[in-house]
Each structure stands twice: as structure tokens, then as C-alpha cells.
Design a protein around this nucleic acid. Structure first.
Lengths: 131, 131
DNA sequence: CCGAATCCAATTGGATACTG
DNA sequence: CAGTATCCAATTGGATTCGG
């Protein structure tokens, strides 16, 4: 019965307060924002702290401004840490937190699911190229 | 070994062509855009076709313009269908496709995961309210 | 080296008015 | 009813410059 399946999917949602619901949505949006996942993937693959300029090099296409903004947001959400070494010139290192690493598991699942259904998405778009 | 775990998460990614990689990212972004999930949830819960105005009523806070745009995008991606009944006044009905319903499964998992770790996110934000 | 500040172009979003 | 069109305010994003 499709009805029950789809509505049960979001049952957990009703247990949330409006404030919690909003926070959940906000986190979901920030996680999936333009550069968040790309930056988190670089940090995950690095398996250790990375300097600002290393991240900038490895995230292809990102601007300095966008990287700064992305790192700030990820830090606010507790997904990465920022460590400043007050030297001259200064050194700043970023690293995934446990929360950040844990998050990549369900995110990768969704990503993988989309990649697996790519023919469906490509076909849908091809059919409606005139819209 | 954390290294292997995190890097394996995205192994599938390397099998994608650059074009497929881009399409995957695009779909992921559109799915998680401001109103997409809210609209899909309404359609999922309706368990049947819904008229434009019914969706507009039930998605709290959405503007008519934003709803139109969201529905168009979901249709292009093959996640919903749009059926026009050329009456006067016209009637238009929207409904989830199988692809759309399937998608809600991994999406709900991610959503649920975030909701489950909400204390972590709230704590992180509280600590850094000064940033 | 890291990033804040500034300037400017482009995109987005709401509100309103109008049409088949 | 279900949009499209238009106007306008606000946000976003790149490029560049400057500073600790």
C-alpha cells in the first residue's frame, strides 16, 4: 500500500517541535548548499587537518570568498573545526569533526541513489527539453 | 580505520563521467532546494492527484510564484506529473511519479538522521553564536 | 598566508496586475 | 483557476584590493 509507505516516511517529522523542524530544514539546506559537500569530501579524503590554501586548490572551481563562507557555515554547524596557529604568516587548519564524518554516511547514500537513477533523470529531462 | 571508511563512501563517485557527476550534483541541489521537499511531502501524503490551489494551501508559507517554479522543476526532473484538464476554469493536477516516491526513501533517511542529531547541531550553534 | 572589505553584475523572491 | 508578466527590493557571487 503506497499510501502508508509514503506517509510513514515522514512520521518522525511530526514528533518535532516547530523550532526543531526549522532547524532540521536549515541544516539540510546548508549541508546541500553549493560547496558544502565538495569541501567536506576533500577534508574526508585528506584524513587530517588541511590548510586553507590546500582546500582552495583541491575544490575545483571554488572562489576564495565562497570557500571562506562555506568553511564558516560548516564550522557553525559543528561539522568541521578551525584551528588558528598565530604565526607569521598565520596558519589555519580545518578538519572534519566526528559529527561531520558521521553525516557523510547518509549523505553518500542519497548521492549514490541519485547516481544510480541517473538514466531516469536524464530521460525525464530529455523528454521535456521543450518546457 | 577512519581513512578508508570516509574515502570509500564516495568511491562510486569516481566511476561517474564528468557529465554524470554534474547531473547528479544538479539533481541533489534541486531536490534539496527551498520548497522541493515540502511540496513532494504534500503530494506523497495526498496519495493522489492534487490541484494547484490545494498544494498552495497546504505548503505553509510558499508564494504562488515559488510554487509554480518548484512544480516546473520537479516535473522536469521526472519527479511529478502535471495533468491539464482544458476546462473553463482550467483544472491542473499534480502527482508524484514512481521515481518521486522512490526518492523520498533516501531523502527521509537523511532528514531523519539530521533530526536525530539535532542536539549536536543545536549545541554547536550555541557555542559559536558569537562567530 | 588567511581572509575581511569593497564594488559591481546577476540572480532571486515577493507583491501586484493581468489573461485564457 | 492557474498561471504569466512586470516591477522592485534584497540577496548572492565573482573580482579585486587591502590588512594582520
Amino acid at each position: 500500500m503506497v499510501t502508508k509507505l509514503t506517509s510513514e516516511l515522514f512520521n518522525f517529522h511530526e514528533a518535532l517541535t516547530p523550532a526543531d523542524d526549522r532547524l532540521t530544514r536549515e541544516v539540510l539546506e546548508r549541508i546541500t548548499a553549493r560547496w558544502s559537500l565538495a569541501v567536506m569530501r576533500i577534508l574526508a579524503e585528506a584524513d587530517g587537518p588541511l590548510r586553507f590554501s590546500r582546500v582552495l586548490e583541491r575544490v575545483q572551481g571554488i572562489s576564495q570568498k565562497a570557500l571562506t563562507q562555506t568553511l564558516r557555515t560548516l564550522e557553525r554547524d559543528g561539522l568541521i573545526t578551525r584551528t588558528l596557529y598565530p604565526q607569521v604568516p598565520p596558519r589555519v587548519e580545518y578538519e572534519l569533526t566526528t559529527l561531520g564524518r558521521d553525516l557523510l554516511v547518509p549523505v553518500a547514500s542519497l548521492w549514490r541513489w541519485i547516481a544510480g537513477r541517473l538514466p531516469d533523470f536524464a530521460a525525464a529531462q530529455a523528454l521535456r527539453r521543450d518546457l
